[in-house]
């Protein structure tokens, strides 16, 4: 298949819009499932104030460590707070920090990758060696060290989670820039006197929309995983606001008596990761010209 990327991009868009929703669902099951799952989780988190039966931060000394019941679906925690309400509210911070980190990691990674790809030589070497070094750390261990150094706060966790995701994007984009640099439309832009910034922004970046979109989805999933791992190890967002990783950790102690306190937030983290992985895969299918031809043949 040697369809140029841009035309493949257009070729996909046209038939899909003509085919209607059901055909789209049939053609891209992973993208559909992932998006639906994510929509459900987001909806749950946004509607938490409506859905939650109790205030997630309200202590109640008379109702500590209650087992699950009709009144408290998942029971109550050490301070008498309703765990189900905390799980519903916990989605907001969990998803917010993940999306913020996924997007910022991608933006920084794309910028570094573009610069490294544009400037072979010293600049490229410095950026790439730095990226390789960051990549050499197991992401969780780097995130642990950073969040330890910066203390427990929203910003420090955001930085810790973001830093480890930057290198992959940067290296990916750099490779793509290198591949594009030999293409005729980039050459012709350069010959006609376009500045390197213009070439980057107008000619190279639009041709990377696909890999960048996929990368945002994967980075966001990774961010959920890392931030929840940090929370599980006791380095999560500061209390009392709930988040799924922290709830899982708090509930683990009571696993034998109230398993759902721990398993429910864990299952939601699992579903969120699944959603982002499915969306990442689905987007890859969606952008891949080979998938399209396969779908066409099958129909």
């Amino acid at each position: 298949m040697t369809i140029p990327r841009t035309s493949a991009f257009l070729a996909i868009k046209v038939p899909v819009s003509k085919r209607g929703v059901l055909d789209f669902v049939w053609a891209y099951p992973r993208l559909t499932c992932g998006t639906a799952l994510l929509a459900l989780l987001v909806l749950m988190s946004v509607l938490a104030p409506v859905l939650a039966p109790y205030d997630p931060l309200q202590n109640n000394p008379n109702a500590t460590l209650l087992p699950p019941s009709g009144e408290h679906w998942l029971g109550t925690d050490l301070l008498g707070r309703d765990v189900w309400s905390r799980v519903l509210y916990g989605g907001k911070d969990t998803l917010y920090i993940a999306v913020l980190s996924g997007v910022s990691a991608t933006v920084i990674g794309v910028i570094l990758g573009l610069i490294a790809g544009q400037r072979p030589g010293a600049v490229d070497t410095v950026i790439m060696r730095a990226m390789e070094s960051v990549l050499a750390f197991p992401s969780l261990i780097l995130a642990l060290a950073i969040s330890f150094a910066l203390g427990s706060s929203f910003t420090s966790i955001l930085i810790a989670v973001t830093v480890s995701s930057i290198p992959r994007t940067a290296m990916l984009v750099r490779g793509e820039v290198r591949a594009l640099a030999n293409r005729k439309f980039v050459d012709s832009a350069r010959v006609s006197g376009a500045s390197s910034t213009r070439i980057m922004m107008r000619h190279e970046l639009p041709n990377m929309t696909e890999i960048i979109t996929v990368q945002v989805a994967l980075d966001t999933g990774q961010a959920i995983f890392i931030s929840a791992s940090l929370a599980f190890l006791g380095l999560g967002l500061p209390p009392p606001a709930p988040n799924w990783g922290g709830l899982l950790k708090d509930g683990y102690v009571f696993l034998a008596n109230a398993p759902l306190q721990c398993l429910a937030p864990g299952a939601l983290i699992f579903l969120a990761l699944l959603a982002f992985n499915l969306i990442g895969d689905g987007l890859r299918d969606y952008f891949d010209p080979r998938t399209l031809s396969r779908q066409r043949i099958r129909r």
């Binding site: 791992s229 599980f232 990783g245 899982l248 683990y252 864990g266 983290i269 990761l273 699944l274």
Partner: peptide, 9 residues
């Protein structure tokens, strides 16, 4: 997709 902390628990 299954996070190790959830699977472990």
């Amino acid at each position: 997709s299954v996070p190790n902390f959830f699977l472990g628990v």
